[in-house]
Simulated scan of single mutants.
Amino acid sequence: MTVSLQIIYPASADATFDYDYYEETHLPLVEEHLGELMETVEASRGIASGPDMPPAYLLIATITFPDMETLDRAMGEKSGPVIDDVANFTNVQPQILVGQVLMS
């Protein structure tokens, strides 16, 4: 069963997010440390939450893994440098959602 890890960065009035750093430095770091375990990685920058509505989320990243065991391994032994890097591009505490992929 393919599982997904979604990292969700909520928007707020005082939120900061360096998208260039995220794309040029953080995503390659994710690939370096988790690449052998991941199936896919995708990041979407929030642009709106509806007509004439600002985005509720700055960014949502989705990483898929072949199974829960692989996700657990990635989060256990491999994720330290990736998690430590978050403070370099945002002051937002991300939310996490682990899910079962129903369709891809």
Rank of each mutant, 00 (worst) to 15 (best):
A15C: 10
V98G: 06
I7A: 03
V82A: 01
G76M: 07
I47H: 12
L29P: 06
I47V: 15
E69Y: 00
L29A: 06
Q93G: 01
D84V: 04
A56F: 08
T25E: 11
I60L: 12
E24K: 15
I60E: 08
T62N: 13
P94Y: 00
Q100K: 04
V82R: 00
D85H: 09
T40M: 07
A15M: 08
L102N: 03
Y22W: 10
L5F: 10
L5K: 04
L5H: 06
Q95P: 05
I8P: 09
Y22R: 03
S4M: 07
G50S: 10
A48S: 14
L37W: 01
G46R: 05
E31N: 04
T62Q: 14
L71E: 01
Q93Y: 00
F17P: 09
T90A: 04
S44Q: 14
L5P: 02
I7Y: 00
K78N: 06
S104F: 00
L102M: 05
G50Y: 07
G76T: 13
T90V: 06
A43V: 13
V41P: 02
A74R: 02
Q6A: 11
P94C: 06
E31K: 05
V41Q: 12
N91H: 04
V41W: 05
I47Y: 10
R45Y: 09
D18M: 14
D84L: 11
E36C: 04
T40V: 06
M68W: 01
G35I: 02
M75E: 03
S79T: 12
T25G: 03
Y57M: 14
E31A: 07
A56W: 04
A15Q: 09
F65Q: 01
P28W: 02
A61F: 00
T40R: 13
I7T: 12
D84C: 08
L102E: 04
E23C: 12
M68P: 01
S79M: 14
E32S: 10
T70N: 04
P28M: 03
I63L: 13
S44T: 15
V30G: 00
D20W: 07
L29I: 05
S12H: 12
L71D: 01
F17S: 09
D67A: 02
L59R: 10
G46N: 07
D85N: 13
H33W: 06
I96T: 15
Q100S: 02
T64L: 09
S79W: 05
T62E: 14
G80N: 01
E77I: 04
S104R: 09
Y57E: 15
S12I: 07
L34S: 03
T62F: 03
H26L: 12
Y9L: 06
L97W: 02
M103A: 08
S104Y: 01
E32N: 08
M38D: 02
E24D: 14
E36M: 07
A11W: 13
H33C: 12
D84M: 11
P66F: 00
D52F: 11
G76E: 10
Y19G: 09
M75F: 03
D67T: 02
E36Q: 12
P55T: 13
A11L: 14
G50T: 08
V41K: 12
M53S: 15
F65M: 01
T70K: 03
R73H: 15
A87P: 13
S12V: 08
K78T: 00
A87T: 15
I47R: 11
F17L: 09
R73F: 05
S49I: 08
D52Y: 10
